[in-house]
Each structure stands twice: as C-alpha cells, then as structure tokens.
Design a protein around this nucleic acid. Structure first.
Length: 261
DNA sequence: ATGGTTGATGGTCAA
C-alpha cells in the first residue's frame, strides 16, 4: 500500500500537478495540506477521476485545509477535538485497518517568541494539544500513521545550516523539543529517517525566494510521515520527490511517499 | 541587516 503526503499550496491551482503525480506514483492514499478551498468548492470529481473516489475533506477559504483521498474506503472520519479553533489542520480516518492522521501544524510566523508572536504561540499550543490528545485516541501497539506538513525540521541535517537556523522558526530548540514530546506519545517512528541516515541532508521544502532553489539547495525537511511501532516492520520503500519542486508552477513543498507491505 | 516569491484575494495577510 502506497501513501503519499503533499502540501499542495492550493488544490485548485495545482490540480493538474496532482493528476500527474498520481499517474506517476499510483498512490493508494493521498494526504494533502493547504488545499485553501471550502469543502463545497473542492475538486472532488477531478480527484475521483484519478482513481481516488473515497474522500475526506476539511477545508476553508484561502488558508489551511486538509484532505484524505483514497482508492480504498475510508471509515470513522474524525477531526481533532479543537472545535473552538476554526483553522482546518487535522483529519483522521481508518483505512485498511490503519488509523491515518493528516496534519498541518501551524507555520508559526517570523519571531520565535510566543510572548510577542501569537502565531508562534498558536504553533506551540497546537503541539501541546497533540501531546494531550494522541494518547487518548491511540496506543503504541495500534497500527497508526500520521503524516503531513509539520512545519518543523527537527534534526541537524533536516536543514541546510543547523547553526544559521537555530533562531529561525521551524528549527528552534523550543519547537523541536515540543515535537519530540509529540513523537514520544506513541513511540512514533520517523519514516524518512528510518530509511535515510541522520548524517545525510534531507529536505522536503525549498523557499520560493531563492533565485535558483536547486543550486542554492537551502532546504528544510518540514514534511513527515510517522508510524507507530507495529507498522515499522512493514515499511518497504520511502521517497521524497525532490524533482516535483522543479515542475512548472510547483508548490514550495514536495511529496513524501511510503510503501507498507 | 535586509529582501527576496507565491497564493487567494481585491487591500493585505499568510507562508
């Protein structure tokens, strides 16, 4: 079974890129973030025509928005119990016996201080909610997969320069520590680092602001796939599709793919 | 230290 996650940065603008991606990769399940569209406007039929007719969507106008698109039936579709906050950043469903969570963690703004930047405070609060919530909906011996744009590059070689990014939101110790506590909730296995050694540079995002993103290669690994321990022995393949960043009118994030036996 | 680009939107805000 192949699962693919991608921050698509507008599903309407990049529906053609999604079609090409699905044709090339043949995923059984696609998790999207930043769909940026109300549920009523979501291109359901175009996605169904790609072979993904089972769809759970949770979107809003202009910002955020997540979706789970599947060849296989989706059961028990759920949202994180944070109804007091209106941003659409989480969606869960059970598929093929696996509890699947699609996540879009807040980016956090520019200043890494929750006292002066409410976006960073929101990011930390969202992580705290996950720390409280995940143990109540799952267990370490249960097959679960959580993926999406976490907006945090936790390890030294998940960024192009560890030293230069220590004060840059996405790689600051406070959010990295908080993400480690999320990871500890259910002993989550970091799939990309299961396959790629920690000493090797690995990115899933490159800024739009570089003259030549590939030559500069100042990337960050913001997009993740995590599994609980029962799924670790079933991991057979993983890829971060760097080439997609070079497609015409690309998203600034590229897809991450995993195969499970 | 600063500015660089993109998307949704219709003047900016978010990333």
């Amino acid at each position: 079974m192949r699962i693919l996650t991608w921050n698509i940065n507008s599903v309407r603008l990049r529906i053609g890129l999604l079609e090409r991606l699905v044709a090339e990769q043949s995923p059984d399940i696609v998790c999207l973030q930043e769909t940026k569209v109300d549920d009523g406007q979501f291109p359901r039929e175009a996605v169904a025509a790609m072979g993904l007719p089972n769809q759970a969507i949770h979107g809003q106008k202009s910002y955020n928005g997540v979706a789970i698109l599947s060849r296989l039936p989706l059961e028990d579709v759920r949202l994180l119990p944070r109804a007091e906050r209106l941003d659409c950043r989480h969606l869960a469903a059970r598929v093929a016996g696996i509890d699947l969570h699609c996540l879009y963690i807040p980016s956090g703004g520019d200043v890494p201080d929750p006292a002066v930047n409410d976006k960073f405070a929101h990011k930390l609060a969202f992580l705290d909610d996950l720390i409280d919530w995940l143990p109540t909906v799952g267990a370490v011996d249960q097959p679960m997969l959580m993926c999406g744009d976490f907006n945090i590059a936790p390890m030294e070689h998940d960024v192009w320069s560890h030293k230069q990014l220590l004060d840059v939101v996405s790689h600051t110790p406070v959010e990295v520590d908080r993400l480690a506590r999320v990871q500890a909730t259910l002993d989550w296995v970091d799939v990309s680092r299961h396959f790629v050694p920690a000493q090797e540079k690995l990115y899933s995002w490159w800024s739009y602001r570089a003259k030549d993103w590939s030559a500069a290669d100042r990337g960050r690994r913001l997009d993740h796939i995590w599994v609980t321990p029962p799924l670790a022995p079933r991991l057979t393949h993983h890829a971060i599709l760097r080439d997609v960043r070079g497609w015409s009118q690309a998203s600034d994030h590229v897809p991450v793919v995993v195969d499970l036996a």
